[in-house]
Design a protein around this nucleic acid. Structure first.
Lengths: 251, 251
DNA sequence: AACTGGTTTTCATGAATATGAATGATGGTG
DNA sequence: CACCATCATTCATATTCATGAAAACCAGTT
């Protein structure tokens, strides 16, 4: 049976590029096999295929396998034509400039939260994440914002079936406690996590309906700094939400 | 049997991103299936897998499937740490600035030529290609340069087994004619294609040994412009070759 | 030249996936 | 509101691939 990971080769293909991105240099076939936790012979076929497509090449000198710039060209072209982010991102950048903390743009994807974009703050100690990262709903601020947006029936159903995995010592793993936390957030107008996803990180989040899609936006940073500025940060977050909903009421 | 394309899913995975890059916008599952020439049900699994890895997401509004910025982040990180190109590319950029024509950096990969980088000239009518493109050896200038570098035995063997596919009306498809052309190139010190790969495109190429690897470099542009400036272009090409070999004699 | 350690390539077979067909959603239209 | 057209999802099965083992290869070294 499949380890519920999805199509094996597709996962390995992207994992291979991720491995190159982490290693920041060429890899030998054996190293690739190790990085992918896959048999060498399997990786051999994968590398052959991607080489034939022009994504990899092998140095005849030391058998090192390098990625070409093809992936970059394709990714750049794709990103240059993202219509949604084009309009949303400037608002988030403004929010980042106001707060100097990291701004997250996320969506609900099934029972998880997917970061569409991450605009990092300028401080030395900051919340750092990557576009495409996937977080659990119950421990991320954006996740709570999406839960809070549902009607009571839907929310109860979703909370009941979410896997409330422990991420840190502060993660809420009791369904009743999560319900209470969400109720609090609904009253407050925004949702908060305090070290529930990552230790010492606090996040403030809300949702915004833009172009008919519900987006989640959040400000995240170190607990102490965030707690000190919570009132102002929340105000700015809600102001950004209003701006987004204003520009995205059409289409 | 497998259509000699390699691992099916790996090809489809990269083809999917290429399709997004061409379409410059979201695609529905049906459109993806069409773009990949694959059954919808197969694409469904692929999309699910890549969504779970954070590379794609689906708009709940109109079922449009979008790529995230994750691929861009990974590709950017990879490209930022390419040790070979870091030193070679500046030389090629200088060559581009001198000639204002497109400069190609290529390698031999099996019996084909793989473009590692393409630095396009600034003119309105210019040779345009992408990193990762794969060209036949017999019709590309860099391919001829690699053939010309072999000793007589190896060259004869390779020429004998290359598939001399017709690409344009000018493509050399006779082995004897190719041999003669290569001999000419060896005497001349550089290799030429005249509309043999792409109509009305002329290329001048040579190889350079850099860091123990043999690289192919070429200048390419419209036939008329290239023919008019051939002597000077060739001189500059050979000068760039010398520069590359000087910097790459160590390591 | 033969050996040694490490690596890559090949190959037959069991395991996982790709697929067509059927089912289930969804949205627009009369 | 029911119909239709389009699209997405599920499922059983044949197809294809992933895999371990063995062979081949390569670069040093004796």
């Amino acid at each position: 049976m499949n380890m519920n990971d999805g199509v094996k080769t597709a996962v390995r293909t992207v994992n291979l590029f991720e491995a190159f991105s982490r290693r920041k240099g060429p890899m030998t076939l054996t190293q690739i096999a190790e990085a992918l936790s896959a048999p060498i012979s399997s990786c051999h076929g994968l590398v052959r295929t991607l080489s034939a497509k022009g994504y990899l090449y092998t140095s005849e000198r030391n058998r090192a396998i390098y990625p070409t710039k093809r992936l970059l060209e394709i990714a750049t072209t794709i990103a240059a034509h993202d219509p949604v982010l084009e309009t949303i991102v400037p608002v988030l950048e403004a929010l980042r400039d106001e707060t100097d903390e990291t701004i997250l743009l996320g969506r609900r994807q099934g029972e998880t939260i997917l970061y569409l974009d991450v605009i990092e703050g300028g401080q030395t100690l900051r919340y750092s994440a990557g576009a495409g990262d996937i977080k659990p709903m119950h421990s991320s601020a954006i996740g709570k914002a999406f839960l809070g947006r549902l009607n009571d029936t839907e929310r109860a159903a979703l909370v009941a079936r979410l896997p409330l995995d422990l991420r840190t010592a502060n993660t809420i793993t009791e369904r009743a406690a999560l319900e209470a936390d969400l109720t609090e957030g609904i009253g407050r107008g925004y949702f908060v996590t305090r070290g529930e996803n990552v230790v010492d990180v606090m996040g403030l989040a809300t949702t915004a309906d833009v172009y008919g899609e519900t987006m989640g936006i959040a400000v995240a940073g170190p607990l102490v700094r965030m707690e000190a500025g919570e009132a102002e940060l929340a105000a700015r977050l809600l102001s950004a939400k209003a701006t987004l909903e204003a520009l995205g009421s059409g289409a």
